[in-house]
Structure formats: C-alpha cells, structure tokens
Write a protein that binds this DNA or RNA. Sequence first.
DNA 1: ACAAAAGTGTTTTGGGTACACCCATGT
DNA 2: ACATGGGTGTACCCAAAACACTTTTGT
Lengths: 241, 241
Amino acid sequence: MTSKMLPSLSVDCVIFGYEDNMLKVLLRQEQVPFDDSIAIEWKLPGNHVFRNETVDETAARILKEQTGLEEIYVKQFYVFSDPARLTKRPQDFIWVKPRLIDDRVITVGFYSLINLPDFDNSMLISEAQWMNTSEVTDLMFDHVEIFQEALKRLRYDLIHEPIAFELLPEKFTLTQMQKIYEAILGTTFDKRNYRRKINKMPYLIQLDEFQSNVSHKPARLYSFNREIYEKTYTERFDFRV
Amino acid sequence: MTSKMLPSLSVDCVIFGYEDNMLKVLLRQEQVPFDDSIAIEWKLPGNHVFRNETVDETAARILKEQTGLEEIYVKQFYVFSDPARLTKRPQDFIWVKPRLIDDRVITVGFYSLINLPDFDNSMLISEAQWMNTSEVTDLMFDHVEIFQEALKRLRYDLIHEPIAFELLPEKFTLTQMQKIYEAILGTTFDKRNYRRKINKMPYLIQLDEFQSNVSHKPARLYSFNREIYEKTYTERFDFRV
DNA sequence: ACAAAAGTGTTTTGGGTACACCCATGT
DNA sequence: ACATGGGTGTACCCAAAACACTTTTGT
C-alpha cells in the first residue's frame, strides 16, 4: 500500500517523430518467453504512476528515460481501462505479471512530438527504435489500439492547435511546414493556396534569413511566435489547410 | 488488495441537463464537519472504479445511481491527477478520508447529457439537485476545475459532433435545436442563416408532423438519423453554426 | 545548361453574413 | 384583433480551389 507506485495506474506514451516527410513512432522491444523459446515483441514505452506525481509528470519521466529529452510536448488523449487489456494476449501477460503489483492496470494514453533531425539518436536506449507509423501492425497488449487512437487524435489536433511547430526546427521553410500537414493528414495541398492561408496567420514570422547550400533557390525561413498566437487566438479559428 | 474497488482510481461525472433554454448541471450535497458544526457543500457525483469494469461502465453506474437512467450519453474528457487534489481543501479531506482506501486518488472526468423535459425528477436521490451552470462557483475538492473543463469540452464537441440531439426529444423543432447551440455556446444566431446551414445536413429528417396546441403557427418537427450521419460523415465537416 | 525547389496571381465557385416581412394558430 | 413564434429570399463579401510559369541557386 505504501509502494512508491500506484499499483493500478500506468501511462503509455505514443512518441511521434518526424523526419524526411515521414511520421514515425518510438517503440521498445521486449523478449517474451514463448513455447520454450524467446520471441521479440514490440510495445509502447510506458510506466507506472508514482504516488507523488501527476500523470503528466509520469509521461515526462517516460520521455526522459527513453530519449533523454526534457520539456517535450506531451498530451493526454484517452484512458484505456478494459479489465482484460493485459490478459487478452496470454504470452504478454506471462511476461508482464512479475512486473505488476496488481493485475488490473488502467493506463492513460499520452502522445508527444519530436523533430528528429534535431534529435540525438545516441540518447536512445538500445531496446528502442523509430518505426514508420504505416508499419505498425502488431504490438503487445492493447497497444495497437492505443497507437491508433493517438494517431487519430494527433490528426485532429493538428488542424485545431499549433502543434506542427513541435515537429519543426526553430526556423523553418513553408514547404517544410506544408509537408508535415501532408505527411500526418495523408493528403497533398496546392502550394499557392497553402501559402495564401499561411499568410493570414499573424504568429508566423517571416525572417530575413534564407536557406544556404541548397542546389536550388534558397527558401525564406519563418518562425512561430507563441505570444502572438495566444493573443490573436479565437475559438473559431482552425488550422485546417 | 482484493477489494472490489481500485483504491486509487475514481470517476467523476459532470451531468449536464437542458431545459428552458438553460444548461444545468447535477450536483450532490454533502454534510461536511466544520468547526464543531456542519457545513453543506456541493460536489460532482463520483465513485470508485470497480475491479471488473471499464471507466465508462463506472460512469454509467454513477448515472444510474444518481438519476435512475441507463443508456445515457457519457463521454470521457480528462484525467485529473494532482497529488494534492483531495487535500487542498482541508475540511473536504476530513470528510472524505474515512471513505478512502488510499489517500491518493486519480479521477477520470466524464460528462453526460440529459434532456430534462423527458426526465422524471422523482428518480433523483434527495441529495442531488440541478443547478444552473452559470451559478456553479464553489465545489468540493477540484470539482470546479473538473466542471469547467467539462463545459469547455462540451462546447468544443457541440460544434464537431452530433451531441445536440442528446439534449433534444426524439422529435424537435429547428428553433429548439438552435436554442441549444445558443445556450451552450453563449451566442445567438440568425434564424434564416441557421436554417440554411441545417438544410445541408442530410441526417436531419423533416417529418410530416407539426407542433399542436401552441398559440402561434405550429412548427414542423424534425428527427436525427444516426445511420445517415455515420454514412455521410466526413472528417472535414464541422457543426459550427 | 540543367536540375531542383522557391515563389507568385487570377478566375470561378460556394459559403457566411446581414437584413425584413408575411403566415398560421390560440386566446 | 392581437400576440406569438414559424417560416422564407436576396445581395454582398470573402474564402476555397483550380491552375502554370518565372526565379535562384548548385553542379
């Protein structure tokens, strides 16, 4: 009862990374006993909630453990509470049982966003790996469902909140920004119409800097100004492009 | 450890009711010891999660206990997990402590929607009462925060999902529907523009029935067809009016 | 010179908004 | 007859969408 952890409550993190016009997700591999041998299975990073922290702090802790990063964007999106969620896949349950205080664990799903070109991959623990979101098919427990819900929510949030900037470097080109929307939403946009829409966003700051060392006309760089965003935000606005 | 309940997990329900162009919320009063006397305090209905149920089932159980109703719309909206959420208001903690297995309780917030003219108030337990949402100021624990988040989420969902129909009778007039949007969003709409927009929704079925016994031109009745909604729904559509 | 991506304007179409009067019913 | 809410059309403006060519750089 006085364990450091809350026995029946965990957080699982769907950590999205973006690079080369591709959306990726961070998965961890585990060695699961299976018919006298060992199978490699993949799962989302997760952990129990400590007694003295909020679930957002749990999510931040998991991010730190897995990637070494702090102050990453994390967002709670859903609670997964099926009483059979750990036992439905018997091998997974055999693997997890010795790690549990209580068999019944409810998990809070979080997603987070990382710009991979800025990311130092040497910080990754060896069991972790970035996987293309289109290739995620089979995960432990109910993690496929958690992943799919996260992706659904990410798409929803992308067009309602300024989260694209979490996946971009400090200074970015409009084409980079457009590609993020295209990669996550799975569509393409007309460049001219996209830019006309962008130009109406007062919090997108046009810089007097340009790309260099590119073998084509260098693109102008932009940055996102959160203060202007907060000031000019109105409930009715949306980010759909 | 083998209690029927999960010690550190509860569900709190923000039960919205609608009547007379007003949005109301169901609150429960509790008698809280205070300086050798008893103070009346109000809280949201809530309960612990049982070991064998999902949190959605917990929410449905709370609804049933408080209102006698089953098959009511319930929706998970946020997890409140501040370690100090029960202890911040010392009197409330004194009241709740004997009811707890563990002092640390994380709660999943749900909201639900009830059309009050269809509702049999005799089913309400005596400690419960409908209160105007504009009059909710002081509740136990962090329940004001939970209530405000629920209201924020309700407004958001109202313009993105067909939840207005949960607050309407089976057959309703367009003015009734318009009033719901106005009451919840706190605005007014032009009748003609509202109706033009409504007429584009194929899942709003015009009936060959009219109001009767009203001292003005009887309004045509409409109904909501969920199957048509599911079929014609596209991600980009929104309910903003 | 060529390849590669940047950057730019016009036209058409449809939706949002503003606005005022007649209609059907009960009393 | 009157009070009450029901029901309808038009004009203007702006946003969305479709669409093609010139510019700048590195090789």
